[in-house]
C-alpha cells in the first residue's frame, strides 16, 4: 500500500502517508496474528486420560514387588497387588514425582488403586 502511493507524492506527504499506512496496517496485522494463533495449544489444558493411565501403570510396573501380570487399573494396591501400606506410600510418591505434583496427606491416603490415582491426577490442573 505504502509503496504504491509513495512515488506519486511529495516527501512530506509520503511521511504522513507512511504514518497513516502504518496505523492502517496495524489492525490487518493483528488479524493475521490472531489467525495464526488460533490453533495455539495451551499446556494447561490437561493431560489425556489414556496418557495418565499409561504412565501410572508404567510406574506400577517399575516396582519389582508387583507381579506384572496382576497390574490393572482396578487392582487394589493392597489386596490385589500385595503391596503393604509403606509400599503404597512409595507408589503414591512415585506418582507425585512422575507428574510433578505434591499430593496432600489426606488425598494421598485415599489413593488405593491405579484408577483412583488416575482420577485424582485428572482433576489436578498442575499435573504434567
Amino acid at each position: 500500500m505504502f509503496r504504491a502511493l509513495c512515488p506519486a507524492s511529495s516527501a512530506f506527504r509520503a511521511a504522513t502517508l507512511y504514518k497513516n499506512a502504518a496505523v492502517a496496517a496495524t489492525p490487518a496485522r493483528t488479524n493475521a496474528l490472531a489467525l495464526s494463533n488460533f490453533v495455539r495449544m495451551y499446556s494447561s489444558v490437561g493431560l489425556a486420560r489414556t496418557d495418565i493411565e499409561k504412565r501410572v501403570l508404567d510406574i506400577l510396573a517399575g516396582f519389582n514387588k508387583v507381579d506384572a501380570n496382576k497390574i490393572s487399573l482396578a487392582a487394589n494396591f493392597n489386596n490385589d497387588l500385595g503391596l503393604d501400606s509403606l509400599d503404597t506410600v512409595e507408589v503414591v510418591m512415585a506418582i507425585e514425582e512422575e507428574f510433578s505434583i505434591e499430593i496432600p496427606d489426606k488425598d494421598a491416603d485415599d489413593i488405593k488403586s491405579a484408577a483412583q490415582a488416575v482420577e485424582y491426577i485428572s482433576k489436578r490442573d498442575d499435573a504434567h
Binding site: S85, V89, E90, V92, M93, D105, A108, D109
Partner: peptide
Amino acid sequence: ARQSVLHLYRDFQR
C-alpha cells in the same frame, strides 16, 4: 496411629 506413621514415612521419603 497407623495413619500418622504413614504420614511420617511419607514426610521422610519426600
